[in-house]
């Protein structure tokens, strides 16, 4: 019989060694997966309301596919330029990292700029979020993605300052890897947007 006063036979004297931030990557990945669920609900809403035009314009009347193609190209190229930044990071080339981050940021800014231009044209044509349930769902979905890209650019600029001050130390490398996942994740969401919203909408 063991009693409460009896001492255990052995102890684990050493705490298991954890690097600081060792679980950050997995934690950030799980954040991205929860973000994917937010987008899933927005896609579902868009799908349910995809023919609730309320007498307003239909996707075929308002979408400019060439503009969407340019935007898609910008985001796709920004994915590979961020990849080049990660390659430069692996080789410890600080200037290479900064150069590719700047290119990535400019491509992202071009994407957001074109999207804002598209939105302004739509609003000017009278296709506002208030026009129909369809357009409410459209603006919510696409603008949520655009807002994510905007915050990605802000994060990218912050990283440029941190790299300028402290260089490629392990913490900055970890932050760059998280931003890499965030950026590539946004490109994946955009695949869903251009396929289901724009291409299937115009078809």
């Amino acid at each position: 019989m063991t009693t409460m006063t009896e001492k255990p036979a052995f102890y684990v004297l050493e705490e298991e060694h954890h690097e600081p931030g060792g679980s950050t990557m997995l934690g950030f990945w799980i954040y991205l997966m929860s973000d994917a669920l937010i987008f899933a609900t927005l896609f579902a809403t868009y799908g349910v309301l995809s023919s609730s035009f309320a007498g307003g314009p239909t996707p075929r009347e308002i979408f400019e596919l060439p503009l969407v193609a340019v935007n898609t190209a910008l985001l796709l190229i920004s994915s590979i330029t961020y990849g080049f930044a990660m390659m430069a990071m692996q080789q410890g080339k600080l200037n290479g990292v900064r150069l590719w981050l700047v290119v990535t940021g400019l491509l992202g800014a071009g994407f957001v700029g074109i999207e804002l231009y598209e939105f302004s044209v739509l609003v000017h044509e009278g296709a506002t979020p208030q026009t129909s349930a369809y357009l409410s769902a459209f603006f919510t979905l696409v603008a949520t993605h655009g807002l994510h890209v905007t915050f990605g650019i802000i994060w990218l600029v912050v990283m440029l300052f941190q790299l300028g001050q402290r260089g490629l130390h392990p913490e900055n490398q970890r932050r760059l890897m998280c931003l890499s996942m965030f950026w590539h994740f946004l490109d994946i969401v955009w695949i869903g947007v251009f396929t289901f919203v724009y291409l299937l909408g115009v078809l």
């Binding site: 690097e19 060792g22 679980s23 990557m25 997995l26 590979i80 990849g83 080049f84 990660m86 390659m87 990071m89 692996q90 890897m177 890499s180 996942m181």
Partner: peptide, 14 residues
């Protein structure tokens, strides 16, 4: 889990 390096390779990116 400590050894994983989620950078990928240039080949994978291309």
């Amino acid at each position: 889990s400590h050894e994983t390096a989620p950078h990928g390779s240039l080949r994978a990116y291309l």
